[in-house]
Nucleic acid binder design. Structure first.
Lengths: 222, 222
DNA sequence: GTCTATAACGGGATAGAC
DNA sequence: GTCTATCCCGTTATAGAC
């Protein structure tokens, strides 16, 4: 195959720029300049700018979420009838999102930041795509966490898993920045280890006292 | 004063649009349409688009960080010579960033999301402004947390505080969305309570074993 | 499949009347 | 201080030659 594939050059450049400047902050012309291709090639291969974004996002996020589900499956299979240990579930969730840093070097940092940023992108299409891709992962992991944390009521379980996602997202979005994890970026196991200690302790904390039906404010009937 | 203030109308509209679509995703023309003012008025009152962003950001972030420092000061003063309890420090950090939801209603939701989004906004100016504004808060709170968590080595302390910031940021950015905290949005004390339980437990977790100088990989001298 | 050229439009910024 | 009009550039997208 003579000359690097045009399609992939576009994907690589777009991935890098979306990661650095966001969707709205990246112009197609910036993409073609970096990819050293023609503007029309983008439209030929992908269609609209949003279609390009979709392609970039899926190339990154699909394998990560697949690996999450696979790892969770292995963890569940490995623990027989018992619920898998909390730490193992967390590792199954966290590692795939950070692993690419180690495996792919500089591009891994870009991918990781792209992933984290996608979760907070203002663009509505991005939001829809992310929620879509994340649906099954969120459901399966919430379920697994529920077995590992039987003391948590349903609502609190959902809220706490959201905090896990928040931590993951923030760490990803900060990849390669001035963050405190900068030195650990290429030692993923160690970084995941730090996160697991923190998150497992938080998740295991007792549920806050229920006071849903105890509204201190004046009720309708005095 | 006849006719609402032009300057404030612009700030309000820009705040709402930046919050919803980000900086790059918001055009000045969209701002003036919503504010029902003239395009030239924006340049007259603020200068460039970046100057407008700076004004919007500072209007929101300065009072929040001021209140954080004030609350921390009160907490420290109230505990005499002892280090303040961890939970009180966390409340001092979290509440100001979420309080506006309760106090300001719909605009509070906008502000909160704007705050969360600013922390992950790709634009470099935003990053610089946020880091600037956050500097003193980060330093003071890290210091206070250090006294409350004497078992944590310096590096781990910084990393864990970063996770607190990550949780805060994610919760803010998700304000008014489908998040699990949606129903608690207007009961800030309760939401903060939930967060504090989780975060305090995570922060109190024992530090992961040090293995910095034990690199399993081959050293320079065998 | 790849390119040039251009359409059609929206962007930020400014000049200058009032 | 507020407005209209306009400059000038960059944007996405497409048409059509090769």
């Amino acid at each position: 195959m003579p000359g690097a594939d045009t399609r992939e050059k576009i994907l690589d450049a777009a991935e890098r720029l979306f990661s650095a400047h966001g969707f709205a902050g990246t112009s197609l012309r910036a993409v073609i300049r970096k990819a050293e291709v023609n503007l029309a090639a983008v439209h030929y291969h992908f269609g609209t700018k949003e279609d390009l974004l979709r392609a970039v996002l899926e190339r990154v996020v699909v394998p990560v979420n697949q690996e999450r589900l696979e790892r969770l499956g292995e963890v569940e299979a490995g623990s027989g009838e018992d619920p898998p240990p909390l730490e193992a579930i967390l590792e199954a969730y966290l590692t795939p999102g950070l692993r690419s840093i180690h495996d792919l070097g500089e591009r891994g940092v870009i991918i990781t930041r792209f992933l984290g940023r996608s979760y907070t992108e203002p663009n509505e299409l991005v939001q829809a795509l992310v929620r879509d891709q994340f649906g099954e992962v969120g459901q399966r992991f919430t379920e697994a966490l529920g077995y590992a944390l039987p003391h948590l009521p349903e609502g609190e379980l959902h809220r706490r898993f959201m905090l896990v996602v928040g931590v993951m997202t923030y760490i990803q979005a900060d990849a390669g920045r001035t963050g405190e994890y900068a030195e650990d970026l290429f030692d993923v196991d160690r970084m995941v280890g730090h996160l697991v200690v923190f998150l497992a302790a938080g998740l295991r904390a007792p549920a806050p006292a229920l006071r849903q039906q105890v509204r201190e404010k004046e009720g309708a009937s005095s």
